[in-house]
Nucleic acid binder design. Structure first.
Lengths: 315, 315
DNA sequence: CTGTTAGCGCATTCAC
DNA sequence: GTGAATGCGCTAACAG
């Protein structure tokens, strides 16, 4: 742990100067094939790896990024992070994890801390209350997830497409009385966009919209199904799988098995508990790797911030 | 981001030498109260914070630890990590996250990477296949979670106590035919210990043990309930809440509501889906903060590796 | 193509 | 008590 070798040692061991070793390390051109190979052999043989702190101090980045999730146990965010981690490690970045718990104040606090620590970049899972102002300092090296903001890089889900796909599917199955369980409009993507997509479809197809927007929690789904159900209702669309799980539990308890459920988000839990529910995969996995890739490119100056939308597809 | 001040700047701004600033930074003695206050004022005013990389290079630790979870979506591990993160941040450590996916090879690979990277310490959620040999190099700065190994620091759950508490509770309720759904013995803690605790209780109370040990997954619970149920069975004890959720689904589908379920692990999902199930809280939250605390003490040489057992208590 | 030199920001002697 | 000098491991000029 303590007596690690340095480029100086490698240089001595392979009979060259430090800078040549450095050049090899950084894949710079201007080193003869012969010496390069020799040095690489020595490095490999001794299991050498350069000190990150030293490189970092020399102005390079320390190759550390932060992932700020809302909650560690968010089913959807988990799926995205699951693909993000390998993507970062593959490129030599260490991802540190932070839980925002939906608190803008906590995010602000952590962002401050991160800038003091000279972190390279941030992936932030957006939620209600995050303001452009608090993100501004990070604009060049920030990727927002599940939410967009003009001027910032973002990876979003196709909320309209997801809802429309599900509605169309229900409609094709013959359903004409489709209720909706969603999230308040203060949440722009999961809340407003999905709800409006529902309303738009209803209008187009002359369906009478029946909706409630309680929130994101399972219990809120459970508690509010009754409000959107009437004797005509044959199908219920949920904005998230979490809501759908809550709603399912209620319907199950009430022994109501004549209502077709549908929801955005096919997480493993959902697939296990309720394979009968029609779901759309918003592309969590793809979102994760795309976000990591985009952030790395921004850090290296290879890409400008841009908005990415992941296409939704029927599961 | 680029023009951060250095101790040199702070020194100049407060009219002292660099070393004095350094002393203040490290809370060293030998600085007059007056100058200390002045320097601290200047630092505060300019929002100065020392470069981590520079300190790290000077032989200090980089104050980065790794948390290796088995799966990002493990309900129990989430609860532990949730308390771990704040504990680390509080002490100035950045926690990087890694997912082992129950693969010893992956763990080995990552541990290698971590040592090359000069990480300060590791919290590892144990599972079948991890060998002492691969952990040995990390012995001084490793904390094993949910599993113990002699010579290594660990934070474990009280498997015997948890099972015994649940069995006693069921017994007190009058149950005399209690089946068990668990995990293979290759998993020493969740598998072997819990199963043996079940058997021990059965023996003591002259209960006829009926058990199956399929594994950790919900589906395995679902698929194997039938094997441990007979006409006498009045209660079913599950080694984990995940198994219990699987089992519940099966029982629900079969419209069997005469069997009392019990399980180790009262996660939020469990409490929502099946509040009727009797659960024991193994102390995930406490385990997380204790693990973080123990690791930090080991890193700073304030504590030797030791085994910590978290007491279980009825939820 | 390759070696030499000079710092990066900080902690640590060692003088004063 | 305090400041000046030294070097951590590395990259970036600049020489050869």
């Amino acid at each position: 742990m303590q007596n690690r070798l340095t480029i100086k040692d490698i240089a001595r061991l392979s009979g060259v100067g430090k800078s040549t070793v450095s050049r090899v390390l950084n894949n710079e051109s201007g080193v003869s094939e012969r010496t390069r190979e020799r040095i690489e052999a020595v490095m490999l043989q001794h299991g050498f790896s350069p000190s990150r702190s030293a490189r970092a101090m020399r102005g390079q980045s320390d190759k550390v990024v932060a992932i700020i999730v809302t909650r560690l146990d968010s089913l959807s965010e988990n799926l995205a992070v699951q693909t993000m981690l390998p993507a970062f490690y593959e490129r030599g970045y260490d991802p540190i994890m932070i839980e925002s718990q939906f608190s803008p104040a906590l995010v602000e606090e952590h962002l401050g801390m991160l800038s003091r620590r000279n972190i390279d970049g941030v992936v932030l899972f957006g939620f209600t209350g995050i303001t452009d102002a608090m993100l501004a300092p990070w604009q060049p090296t920030l990727v927002l997830l599940a939410r967009d903001a003009s001027g910032f890089a973002s990876v979003c889900y196709d909320d309209e497409g997801a809802i429309q796909t599900l509605m169309q599917r229900l409609y094709d199955q013959g359903h004409r009385h489709i209720s909706y369980l969603g999230v308040p409009h203060s949440d722009v993507t999961t809340g407003k966009r999905r709800h409006e997509a529902y309303l738009a479809f209803c209008k187009k197809r002359k369906i009478n919209p029946v909706a409630a927007l309680p929130g994101l929690a399972m219990k809120q789904g459970y508690d509010n199904v009754a409000r959107v159900m009437n004797s005509d209702t044959t199908a219920l669309l949920c904005a998230t799988d979490t809501l759908a799980i809550g709603a399912s539990k209620y319907l199950q308890e009430q022994r109501i098995d004549t209502v077709q459920l549908a929801s955005v988000g096919n997480t493993p839990l959902m697939k296990f508990l309720h394979p009968e529910i029609i779901t759309v995969d918003p592309g969590y996995a793809e979102a994760g790797s795309r976000a990591a890739q985009q952030l790395i490119e921004q850090i290296n100056g290879h890409a400008e911030p841009r908005q990415i939308v992941i296409p939704a597809r029927l599961a």
